[in-house]
């Protein structure tokens, strides 16, 4: 008994040493996350109840900012634009990606080359992506209108027409997100056992019915994952909107301003930090709510 005791204490000491080591090792991350995420989240909520220009001390205004949001036509526009952008660009991109991934999953030559090319926009900074497409969509000497003029003799002014600019932003975002989705879908498709397809072929199924009855159900967890992440990303996207609004006149800007753009403008151009924080809090709850709904609905269509 006596002999066992020092050993026990030694073990305990060792364990304490381990604890200290562990806390030291997680300390940098925990301090960083606390400083730049945890505290800021709490502050976001606090500032959203204040009037604050970023310099003086915030003045408590209760629900003032939120009441103002309800009657704010600009915010209503931002809200509407954000939903329009998210609910068109995400499904379109996912459907296209599924088709491309399915085509690439067949036994074809040069899969790597295709994948590299489709993925190219994802390594290109979105600022430059926007730049390229302002050139493509230029009404006079852009490739797209050159093509449209030859076919239909029309030259829509994509970049300055408030009715068209949202379509441009959506097209560009789809163009730049397909490659990412394809890479992840291909990883998911690789897990589908080949003999499922063979069995289906024996039953005389064609390519489309194989796609609908085997591929889609079996990659549905991956599709679900992508739906969640790309919806969140779409709600948060800023770069494209920012780039397509520079030099844009009022109506063009209003046609694509999103909530995140609104946060930027209200907070860092108008210096109404309290009001901008209220927008951020609303965005946060929208994202939470949409994610929650997706998790509930997934039970209906995701097969594990």
């Amino acid at each position: 008994m006596d002999k066992g005791r020092p050993q026990h204490i030694g073990k305990l000491r060792n364990r304490h040493k381990d604890w200290i080591f562990a806390y030291l090792f997680i300390a940098p991350l925990m301090i960083g996350v606390t400083t730049f995420t945890l505290i800021p989240i709490a502050q976001s909520f606090y500032y959203s109840f204040t009037k604050w220009n970023g310099v003086q001390t915030p003045v408590w205004t209760g629900f003032g900012n939120y009441i103002k949001l309800l009657g704010d036509a600009v915010f209503r526009q931002e809200f509407f634009n954000t939903f329009c952008y998210v609910f068109i660009s995400v499904p379109v991109s996912l459907i296209l990606s599924l088709i491309v991934a399915n085509l690439l999953n067949a036994k074809i030559r040069g899969r790597t080359v295709f994948r590299v090319i489709y993925f190219l926009p994802n390594v290109t900074m979105s600022v430059v992506v926007a730049l390229i497409w302002t050139l493509m969509f230029n009404s006079q000497f852009g490739v797209i209108n050159d093509f449209l003029y030859k076919l239909f003799e029309i030259r829509p002014s994509w970049l300055t027409d408030p009715g068209l600019i949202m379509a441009v932003v959506i097209v560009v975002s789809v163009w730049s997100s397909v490659g990412y989705n394809v890479v992840i879908l291909l990883a998911g498709l690789q897990n589908v056992p080949q003999n499922y397809y063979e069995a289906c072929e024996l039953d005389g199924a064609g390519a489309i019915s194989k796609f609908v009855h085997i591929t889609i159900p079996l990659v549905s967890p991956t599709v679900f994952f992508l739906t969640i992440t790309s919806t969140i990303n779409a709600f948060n996207s800023f770069d494209l909107v920012f780039m397509f609004t520079t030099n844009g006149a009022g109506p063009t800007r209003d046609a694509i301003r999103t909530i995140v753009y609104g946060i930027y403008e209200t907070g860092f151009q108008f210096f109404e930090m309290g009001y901008a924080s209220a927008k951020a809090v609303v965005l946060f709850f929208i994202i939470m709510l949409i994610t929650l709904i997706q998790f509930i609905v997934q039970k209906k269509w995701v097969h594990y």
Partner: peptide, 15 residues
């Protein structure tokens, strides 16, 4: 992981 970084822009800037 679920917190969008856009939400914390303003306090992060103040920090």
């Amino acid at each position: 992981l679920m917190i969008p970084s856009q939400m914390t822009l303003i306090p992060k800037y103040a920090m």
